[in-house]
Design a protein around this nucleic acid. Structure first.
Length: 731
DNA sequence: TCTGTAGGCGTTTTT
DNA sequence: CGCCTACAGA
């Protein structure tokens, strides 16, 4: 019977969470306690046993990846029926709602979604309109401030009202201008996607009513990460039937800086006094020492609901704590430990993961991995869709879909160089501001008023091209539109003309983008939507992250920030850089709230490990290009000493100059150093790397033992290598 | 208007 | 250290 198979293998608490379908339910799920399993089985139970129509279920997650994985698992249980379930991220779900109903708010349904770079441009524009320079007012700080307001659901008017000093008043004014400029461009930023949906529901009860009736059951994953706007959204949707099930872990709330409000989960019972609470404390992932260590750390947080994870697993290795002299020794220790496990213990590279606090820390590890020729993948950091050429191509498409998109226009108006430079464009901006027309229209007006000027014919040609592309491509497939736009604009030709390895890399990225567009068409062949496929494609790329495309492979070590690691697990985990200032990060150590969030982050990192956890710290570290000295993180002391095993540390010789090192890695480097010359390596030389394959040297930096190369590999793209470690063959 | 270079600055984490 | 911006020169 289906009911039995759904409940099979669940413990009593999980089983209760699955079967309690009516009324508010709060599932407090500790790390590794099978929370995703509960969510998927619960959906299966609703449909397969209770006979609930799939289309009346809404399940919301934070990442596309989580949504995708959940959908996969639900489809396995329910087959075709699963397709009608709304299983989506907050942002993607809101886009879907707004594309249908934003017209009520006087917004075009053809709105574009602005990313970080786009919004920064809008902030700068707003500053300018207030007669302020980006030099005196830091645009990033201002945007951060505006984001904080928006996270909390504060409007420009509200911000102005609560302004307590001149600076806040001015920030509130710029906030208002920023929103106006977005509206003029037909654009919404990430926060607007949520805010506009809330506004829509508040102002148009009949619209809210439609969705309330539609979704009889609402499920929310990672509830501890919701901000006040998301909270409000969920509350409104569940107001009628109150069949709301939220799953989360207050100890894993690590997005406070992005507006997540831990009160949402802590106060859930107050919002719904008849809440059924299910606590999942049995851990299916880690060994007891790892759980004890992680609990030991997080128990230092004062504002915390008591919870104690346990496992039935017997024994387990202690947590290893390694104290390194410097960041390089830290990295080489980790890499060699990985190699020991791979070569000596039959482990796969893919069993191992390295987690750090900030992306910048990945560099040293990458260099060491290259040195020892260990295959790896870095998750996060620069996103594919953040690369300049990819954004340029997409900007052309955006401008086709929405001619008001000023950020897109700003981006590509003179790419490739077509004689519409800074001065010309500034005039267009001025006209746009004075007359309240779109930027493109401002450009047109300028060309007409100054018909005799040098720029006029160039403007006309650009506008003609745009009009032509718009006529031709509005209903085209994304791949066709992309190919056409790159060709017609001369973008591709200009890149090909450059004829150097860097341009080749960029062309390669554009080819990849093109195939992503083709994939999109293939994947959405059956989806019928009144909106053009091109628009749907642009929606998707606006909301994907690098993490979404990460697929764990057996043959690669994974590296990522702890934030990115949330929700993942590995047999062997290295948590690195545990020094005061690095982790906990200096800018979060000011107040108790920040520190407690760092501590939860540490807990998240530690609980990713299934069997073996190594924590490392370094006495010296290169930061901002100069040597800095650190002391071990307080979190290390918070791990109960019974479950730790210390290696390295102050008992060893004091820090010695590198040349006197007994570290074989260093000795090796000096043995290799003698040939003196770098073997006559110079840009343009074709080389072969044992792991990356053939490539061309782009640049040579420095000299002596530290000489570095920038090499463009045919398969792997541009990498910076240390010559003496890279084992390059010439030719 | 475009291109190359010198200086300044930053780094927290990201849907 | 590396990226981005501002600025100078052609």
């Amino acid at each position: 019977m289906l009911a039995d198979s759904i409940l099979e293998g669940l413990n009593p608490e999980q089983s209760a969470a699955v079967q309690t379908t009516e009324g508010p339910v709060l599932v407090l799920a500790g790390a590794g306690s099978g929370k995703t399993r509960v969510l998927t089985q619960r959906i299966a139970w609703l449909v397969g046993v209770q006979g609930i129509a799939p289309e009346s279920i809404l399940a919301v997650t934070f990442t596309n990846k989580a949504a995708g994985e959940m959908r996969e698992r639900v489809e396995k249980l329910l087959g075709e029926d699963a397709k009608a379930i709304w299983l989506t991220t907050f942002h993607a779900g809101c886009v879907r709602i707004l594309r249908r109903d934003i017209g009520h708010l006087g917004f075009s349904r053809g709105f574009v979604i602005y990313d970080e770079a786009d919004t920064l441009g809008v902030i700068k524009d707003a500053l300018q309109r207030h007669g302020l320079s980006p030099k005196t007012t830091d645009p990033r700080r201002l945007r951060w401030r505006i984001d904080q307001w928006k996270n909390a659901g504060v409007t420009p008017a509200g911000a102005a009202e609560s302004a307590y000093d001149f600076e806040a008043e001015r920030a509130a004014e710029i906030f208002a201008t920023y929103q106006r400029l977005l509206a003029d461009a037909g654009a919404l930023d990430f926060n607007d996607l949520l805010l506009k949906t809330v506004e829509l529901f508040e102002r148009f009860p009949e619209v809210l009513g439609y969705y309330q009736r539609r979704w009889q059951y609402v499920l929310v994953d990672e509830y501890q990460d919701t901000n006040r706007v998301q909270y409000r959204l969920v509350q409104m949707l569940a107001a009628g039937h109150r069949n709301i099930c939220v799953v989360g872990d207050p100890d894993q709330s690590v997005y406070g800086w992005r507006g997540a409000d831990i009160r949402n989960i802590l106060d859930f019972e107050k919002d719904y006094p008849d809440t059924k609470i299910v606590t999942l404390e049995r851990n299916y992932r880690s060994t007891q020492p790892i759980l004890d260590g992680a609990s030991g750390v997080v128990e230092n947080n004062l504002s915390r609901r008591r919870k104690r994870l346990f496992t039935e697993k017997e024994g387990g290795e202690k947590i290893i704590i390694f104290q390194a002299r410097d960041d390089r020794e830290e990295a080489s220790y980790v890499i060699r430990d990985i190699l020991n496990h791979v070569r000596g213990q039959g482990r796969a590279h893919g069993d191992c993961a390295i987690f750090y606090r900030t992306n910048a820390q990945s560099r040293v590890f990458e260099e060491e991995l290259l040195k020892y020729d260990v295959p790896y993948v870095v998750v996060g950091g620069v996103r594919f869709y953040d690369r300049a050429e990819v954004k340029d191509a997409l900007a052309y498409l955006r401008l086709v879909v929405n001619p008001a998109d000023s950020a897109a226009l700003r981006r590509i108006v003179n790419k490739p160089a077509r004689g519409i430079g800074k001065t010309t464009f500034e005039r267009a901006e001025q006209i746009c501001a004075e007359r309240g027309v779109t930027l493109l229209e401002g450009l047109r007006l300028f060309g007409e008023t100054d018909a005799g000027s040098r720029a006029a014919p160039k403007i006309r040609r650009f506008l003609d091209m745009h009009a032509r592309l718009r006529d031709e491509l509005l209903r085209a497939t994304p791949a066709r539109a992309m190919a056409r736009v790159l060709d017609e604009s001369g973008y591709l030709a200009a890149l090909e003309k450059e004829n150097n390895p860097e341009a080749e890399t960029r062309l390669e990225n554009l080819r990849e983008l093109l195939s992503a567009a083709e994939d999109f068409t293939r994947a959405n062949a059956e989806i019928q939507d009144e909106r053009g496929e091109l628009e749907l494609f642009l929606d998707q790329v606006a909301l994907v992250s690098d993490l979404d495309s990460y697929d764990r492979r057996d043959d690669q070590v994974s590296m990522m920030t702890i934030h990115s690691a949330k929700g993942l697990e590995y047999p062997i985990v290295y948590l690195v850089g545990l020094e005061e200032g690095v982790f906990p990060h200096a800018s979060s150590s000011r107040d108790d709230d920040g520190l407690e969030e760092e501590r939860r982050l540490c807990y998240v990192g530690m609980t990713r490990a299934k069997e073996r956890l190594t924590i490392t710290t370094a006495a010296e570290r290169m930061r901002f290009g100069s040597r800095t000295y650190g002391i071990p993180s307080r979190f290390i002391e918070e791990i109960p000493s019974e479950v730790t095993l210390r290696e390295g540390g102050p008992t060893r010789a004091r820090p010695t100059p590198v040349s006197e090192s007994t570290d074989p890695a260093y000795d090796y480097s000096y043995a290799q150093d003698d040939p003196g010359e770098s073997g006559g390596v110079s840009p343009g030389l074709r080389v072969r790397h044992p792991h990356f394959g053939p490539g061309v040297v782009l640049a040579v930096k420095g000299s002596g033992p530290a000489q570095k190369l920038k090499v463009n590999f045919e398969r792997a793209g541009v990498k910076t290598l240390i010559l003496k470690y890279a084992n390059l063959e010439i030719g």
